[in-house]
Computed example of a mutant assay.
Amino acid sequence: MEKASGAKDDRVQLQQAIDALRPGDDFIVYKLDRLARSTIKLISTLDEIKKRGSEFVSLNDSIDTSTAAGKAFFGMLAVFAEFERNVIVERTNAGLAASRARGRNGGRPKTDRRKVEKALKLYDSRTHSVAEITEATSVTKATLYRAIKDRETSPFQRINDDNGS
């Protein structure tokens, strides 16, 4: 069972499942777009399954490549899966462009720098636990640890450390 998107090419569990195939096995997926979203990726995955002497079955799409109709249907659905993915990407990009045109950049808002600095001072004092710091400052653990790491790798911080500041 893989939780990664069908749009990703590097999927460890998918490759492990294909590697485990033996001649005569059926490679079964719930839905075609869970396997791959581009025609090229679908066809190459199907070829790899075929090379191992196995068949492909999609339960939700009623595809069974051991039949001529299943092979034809697989090819048609592969084209539609790629089309659907491209439409989603186009709509997403258009939405992002429209947002940028209105002056919005998206993403999460940055944590108030003063809160992060306060959290760092509390952390440096070594008198409070991380849980206490996050509760007192509303700075998440991830943000606090990222700030600590950034501070340690910052060239400015190294200069200040060298000067005794």
Rank of each mutant, 00 (worst) to 15 (best):
residue 28 I to G: 06
residue 155 P to H: 10
residue 109 P to W: 04
residue 61 D to R: 01
residue 150 D to S: 12
residue 56 F to N: 06
residue 2 E to Q: 15
residue 87 V to F: 02
residue 113 R to T: 12
residue 162 D to N: 10
residue 22 R to C: 11
residue 159 I to N: 04
residue 158 R to V: 05
residue 60 N to C: 08
residue 23 P to R: 04
residue 99 S to F: 04
residue 30 Y to P: 03
residue 50 K to T: 13
residue 81 A to K: 01
residue 113 R to N: 10
residue 110 K to R: 13
residue 136 A to L: 15
residue 110 K to A: 15
residue 138 S to C: 02
residue 42 L to Q: 11
residue 55 E to D: 13
residue 11 R to A: 08
residue 161 D to A: 14
residue 30 Y to D: 15
residue 133 I to L: 10
residue 103 G to I: 02
residue 136 A to T: 13
residue 124 D to P: 00
residue 72 A to W: 10
residue 1 M to K: 13
residue 19 D to R: 05
residue 143 T to G: 00
residue 85 R to I: 03
residue 1 M to L: 12
residue 6 G to Q: 07
residue 129 S to Q: 03
residue 81 A to Q: 07
residue 86 N to A: 12
residue 20 A to M: 03
residue 151 R to W: 02
residue 114 R to T: 13
residue 34 R to G: 12
residue 120 L to H: 06
residue 113 R to H: 09
residue 53 G to K: 00
residue 133 I to H: 05
residue 137 T to H: 06
residue 100 R to P: 00
residue 99 S to C: 10
residue 47 D to Q: 15
residue 19 D to Y: 00
residue 65 T to G: 11
residue 25 D to K: 09
residue 69 A to L: 12
residue 131 A to S: 15
residue 141 K to S: 10
residue 111 T to C: 12
residue 144 L to E: 02
residue 151 R to N: 11
residue 43 I to D: 10
